[in-house]
């Protein structure tokens, strides 16, 4: 597991371990000790996975937006790698979120998919950031890839609130939507634990991918050594050094 060149554990491994530990504690609490949710019974316990995933996912996308702005501003490979790493983890969490959402929706509402504003918004955002990842894969030139994918990430992130509001209005003007917002005190501790768990896990995953991507992108974007200066050509009769302006 540990990387070879300097050996030993790195900070992202610590984050991963911390995240998994918090998730485990949070889930044990949520699954076995917290009371069952009043309306949905034990099915409601997916809340402890679903809600933390949603919070963490939004944070990961926010980080991706920040990295994209930094990449546009500085043009540095380290931010470019962070854009890709965070977009990947964001898409992973997002896919997880949609899966959990439909697992929850089936016993709760009797359907796999519901046009709940948050669920719908996260589906749209998943496609937006998938587009960013696809774009990165079709641009071979490193500088262009950095610029264009960072621009796409900025545009995608800026669109998130307006997508959410449009879907929300679209739903509420059709039929009122009620979501189980009432959170009892005994739910909060496991929720918080699991949320921090997902956040640390996400940060650890981003760190792992960032480290894996960074070296390649740094090599792509770094200025290679200049080729050795070529000797000046001298024609017969040309005074030494005059033709090429003192190339000696």
């Amino acid at each position: 597991m540990a990387t070879t060149q300097s050996g030993g554990l790195r900070w992202e491994h610590g984050l991963l371990a911390l995240g998994l530990a918090l998730l485990a504690v949070g889930h044990v609490q949520g699954l076995f000790f917290a009371p069952a949710e009043a309306m949905m019974g034990d099915v409601g316990r997916i809340l402890y996975v679903h809600v933390p995933t949603a919070w963490a996912d939004m944070l990961v996308y926010t980080a991706c937006f920040g990295f994209a702005v930094a990449a546009l501003w500085t043009g540095k490979a380290t931010y470019d790698a962070a854009v890709e790493a965070s977009a990947e983890v964001g898409v992973l969490y997002n896919a997880l979120l949609l899966f959990q959402g439909s697992v929850w929706a089936r016993p709760t509402w009797g359907v796999f998919w519901t046009w709940d504003p948050r669920l719908t918004t996260s589906a749209v955002v998943l496609v937006l950031f998938l587009g960013v990842l696809v774009l990165r894969r079709v641009i071979p030139e490193p500088e262009r890839r950095l610029n264009l994918s960072a621009i796409a990430a900025v545009l995608a992130y800026v669109g998130v609130p307006i997508v959410y509001f449009s879907v929300k209005w679209w739903r509420t003007l059709h039929q009122p939507f009620s979501s189980p917002q009432t959170v009892d005190g005994s739910f909060i501790t496991p929720l918080r634990l699991a949320a921090f768990g997902m956040i640390f896990l996400g940060a650890g995953l981003i760190g792992l991918r960032w480290r894996a991507l960074r070296r390649g992108l740094e090599r792509d974007l770094a200025t290679p050594d200049l080729p050795a200066a070529a000797p000046a050509l001298r024609l017969p009769g040309e005074a030494g050094g005059s033709a090429a302006g003192g190339a000696l």
Partner: peptide, 23 residues
Amino acid sequence: LMHEGAARWQGPAARAVEAYTAL
């Protein structure tokens, strides 16, 4: 005269052909 990305010779245009063929 450019050759493989480097400036290799400069001079009067009258000797350009000579320089090019020399290289």
